[in-house]
Lab assay of single mutants.
Amino acid sequence: SRSVIRSIIKSSKLNIDHKDYLLDLLNDVKGSKDLKEFHKMLTAILA
């Protein structure tokens, strides 16, 4: 869910600018399909 993804971003080791950017992107995501794609992208970034 959106709140879980937000929590993953906030607890990541990324610097604050990257976190803010990803949180802004997350706010722009519409629909469950796009949310799944965003989660895939985030997982790849944090891997």
Rank of each mutant, 00 (worst) to 15 (best):
S1H: 12
S1R: 11
R2W: 06
S3A: 11
S3W: 04
S3N: 14
S3F: 04
V4L: 10
V4M: 09
I5S: 02
I5L: 07
I5M: 05
R6E: 15
R6G: 05
R6P: 01
R6L: 05
S7E: 14
S7H: 13
S7K: 11
S7W: 06
S7T: 10
I8W: 03
I8S: 03
I8M: 14
I9W: 00
I9C: 02
I9S: 00
I9N: 00
I9T: 01
K10M: 13
K10R: 15
S11G: 11
S11A: 11
S11D: 14
S11I: 05
S11Q: 10
S12E: 02
K13G: 13
K13Y: 08
K13V: 09
L14A: 03
L14H: 02
L14D: 02
L14W: 01
N15L: 08
N15S: 13
N15F: 08
N15D: 12
N15A: 14
I16T: 15
I16W: 09
I16C: 09
I16P: 15
I16D: 15
I16S: 15
D17H: 11
D17G: 05
D17S: 10
D17W: 09
D17R: 05
H18N: 06
D20F: 04
D20E: 15
Y21H: 08
Y21V: 07
Y21A: 10
L22K: 00
L22E: 00
L22A: 02
L23M: 07
L23Q: 04
L23H: 03
D24I: 12
D24H: 14
L25D: 01
L25H: 03
L25R: 05
L25W: 07
L26I: 03
N27K: 15
N27T: 08
D28R: 15
D28M: 13
D28G: 12
D28A: 14
V29Y: 05
V29I: 13
V29T: 12
V29W: 04
K30W: 07
K30C: 07
K30A: 07
K30Y: 07
K30I: 09
K30S: 10
G31S: 14
G31D: 11
G31E: 07
G31R: 07
G31Q: 06
S32Q: 10
S32K: 13
S32T: 13
S32H: 12
S32E: 15
S32V: 11
K33G: 07
K33R: 13
K33L: 10
K33A: 13
D34G: 15
D34Q: 14
D34I: 05
D34P: 08
L35C: 04
K36V: 12
K36H: 15
E37N: 12
E37M: 09
E37I: 11
F38E: 01
F38T: 01
F38Y: 04
F38I: 03
H39Y: 14
H39S: 08
H39Q: 10
K40F: 05
M41G: 03
M41R: 08
M41Y: 11
M41D: 04
L42W: 02
L42V: 11
L42A: 02
T43C: 09
A44P: 04
A44M: 10
A44Y: 06
I45K: 03
I45N: 02
I45T: 04
I45M: 12
L46E: 01
L46T: 03
A47C: 08
A47G: 12
